[in-house]
Design a protein around this nucleic acid. Structure first.
Length: 432
DNA sequence: TCTGGGGTCCTAGGACCC
DNA sequence: TCTGGGGTCCTAGGACCC
């Protein structure tokens, strides 16, 4: 592949398709009047901004900014503030991936808003093909995407940043020569490189490394000493050597977690139990969807870590279930048992969560010698019916265990309801 | 007053064994 | 005073991502 002169170092093979400001773009699909306005979408509990439109980014609002810290900009510039509606975003994501699927090329779905396509090496005009995809996705789903094409996934990520940043690329940036690679890396800040992270950036800056090109020029032994294996992979990828095998986040999760921060501190065991039952319902639904059984379960509770004046306490405990299961009441009761062992009265609890792990495929289970198969069949039927009813009810579980109470409704805050709330006030969006 | 949620992989270091 | 060495397995916690 490598030839001299104007190096063609590789055939461009990876195309990263990255949805622009995904949650905001989803909201604009159903609320077109938000186009052109600064918009942010909030995390659960309306705590932080997790997605910003370009207009909101231009105001200096950063991902993860707590809402109370950006209240001034929000008011002054009439920023539309919306609660996240993840059920809806997942549906739009599925549409985008479906649209990509019709291209009939190998596709790795990496996250809710990103996917890698493997392009054939003999593709004539990859950049033009990329622009065709941009157009196609926009037409079929309403979502704007940016595309980066390069020989490695990490370089494709770099390219996609350029595609997003400069209109001149018309949605697709291609890094297919040594000159382009050098240029792109020299213009990319080291902390913007996929896999390097912001945490190491200060230390690398001390070493005089500012750009991705500086990093790619480091001797390997220094990279290893500083950043270990993940850093080495990134280093190789930036130099054009593809070594990230499958960017696909495995469809089958190895652990499943559900957790929440509460609007107000919780003091009673009863309320925590109620929350935990709801978490159990959520993780078990996902578990059954991937046809798995969980062998281990863990539970954590924590006070508000930002409240330095109140006494702090947090704990996590876990155990192996009596037998691997996907049965919500079994997970819930074991979760409650664990909760009872770590609960300490007198603290105000702000967060709690439940995690299941060591997930095994349902078919691969050794049935216990003493298992009551009649009981088991009953349980499976019950869960199937519950899942079917809940699937039909679009996000809000229609059927749940009595111990869940009203779920998390009374324990968390959903002030900026994106659906009903925004529709009720289409002129201003929701600000406060 | 007000600070998200859900994942993955890797390393270091302890436990254990011969 | 002196107190092996090396391998494997497991887990907690760090780092990263979106």
């Amino acid at each position: 592949m490598a030839v001299s002169g104007s190096f063609i170092i590789f055939a461009a093979v990876f195309a990263l398709i990255d949805c622009n400001n995904f949650f905001v773009s989803c909201e604009r699909v159903r609320h077109p009047e938000l186009e052109g306005r600064p918009v942010i979408v909030l995390s659960n509990n309306d705590g932080c901004a997790v997605a910003m439109s370009n207009e909101a980014k231009a105001l200096g609002i950063k991902r993860g900014s707590p809402l109370f810290k950006i209240q001034q900009e929000v008011r002054r510039h009439g920023v539309a503030v919306l609660s996240g509606d993840h059920y809806y975003y997942n549906r739009i994501s599925a549409l985008v991936m479906e649209s990509l699927g019709t291209l009939d090329l190998p596709l790795d779905i990496y996250s809710i808003d990103e996917a890698f396509l493997h392009l054939p090496p003999d593709m004539g005009e990859p950049a033009e093909f990329g622009r065709y995809i941009v157009h196609k996705i926009r037409l079929e789903t309403g979502i704007p995407v940016s595309i980066g094409i390069a020989h490695t996934r990490t370089l494709a990520k770099v390219a996609a940043r350029f595609a997003k940043k400069y209109d001149g690329y018309r949605g697709c940036c291609l890094i297919d020569t040594e000159e382009k690679r050098i240029k792109a890396l020299s213009l990319t800040d080291i902390s913007d490189v996929w896999g390097l992270g912001r945490r190491h950036a200060p230390r690398m800056r001390e070493l005089g490394l500012r750009t991705a090109l500086d990093f790619a020029g480091m001797p390997l032994h220094k990279v290893r000493a500083l950043l270990h294996l993940p850093g080495e992979r990134t280093w190789r990828e930036l130099r054009g050597e593809a070594c990230i095998e499958h960017a696909t986040k495995d469809n089958d999760a190895k652990s499943i977690m559900s957790s929440r921060s509460f609007e107000h501190n919780i003091y009673t065991l009863g309320e925590l139990r109620q929350a935990l039952c709801t978490f159990a319902g959520t993780v078990c639904r996902k578990l059954r969807r991937q046809q798995g059984h969980a062998a281990d379960i863990g539970v954590f509770i924590a006070t508000n870590r930002f409240d330095t004046r109140s006494p702090q306490y947090s704990d996590f405990t876990s155990c192996t279930l009596p037998e691997p299961t996907d049965f919500t009441p079994a997970i819930a009761s074991e979760g409650i048992r664990l909760l009872d062992t770590i609960f300490r009265p007198g603290y105000g609890y702000k967060r709690a969560g439940l995690i299941i792990s060591r997930i095994v495929p349902r078919g691969g289970l050794q049935p216990s010698l003493f298992e009551d198969t009649v009981q088991r069949d009953k349980r499976e039927r019950l869960m199937r019916v519950a899942d079917a009813l809940n699937a039909a009810s679009a996000g809000n579980p229609a059927i749940r265990m009595a111990a869940m109470g009203d779920g998390l409704r009374s324990l968390t805050r959903m002030e900026h309801n994106a659906g009903a709330g925004y529709a009720a006030d289409p002129g201003n969006g929701i600000t406060r």
